[in-house]
């Protein structure tokens, strides 16, 4: 059931990316895809334990897997810098094309 939710989120993001012809909305769709993957990753590895921080006064606690969280953190930062770059390019593009409809910008075709 859980998987179904994240899968539908992923596909929703994908559909949003493909149907929207606005560049900004396109990247929002992509963000939704990315977020769904990360959410799935984190939630799947959550075994109902505590956050992976060792407390000195409570030894022997069950901790969640810390690795996916570290990986997700890295992936988020990477995605964030990618998107910053993308938005920069969109800003630059607006110097040349007032519309942001991808199909009306001829240069994006070929």
């Amino acid at each position: 059931m859980n998987q179904l939710f994240f899968l539908s989120l992923f596909l929703l993001g994908f559909i949003g990316m493909l149907l929207n012809r606005n560049l900004i909305k396109l990247i929002i769709g992509f963000e939704i895809m990315e977020a769904s993957v990360l959410l799935w990753f984190i939630s799947f590895t959550n075994q109902g334990g505590n956050p992976p921080i060792y407390l000195l006064d409570k030894p022997g606690m069950v901790l969640n897997d810390p690795l996916p969280q570290a990986l997700a953190l890295t992936a988020i930062v990477i995605a964030a810098s990618n998107i910053a770059l993308f938005l920069t390019l969109v800003i630059e593009l607006s110097r040349y094309h007032k519309a942001s409809d991808v199909d009306k910008i001829k240069g994006l075709r070929d």
Partner: peptide, 13 residues
Amino acid sequence: VFTSFSNQLLLIP
């Protein structure tokens, strides 16, 4: 082959 950009992306799914 080179139709609009959104159609190009459509090829991925």
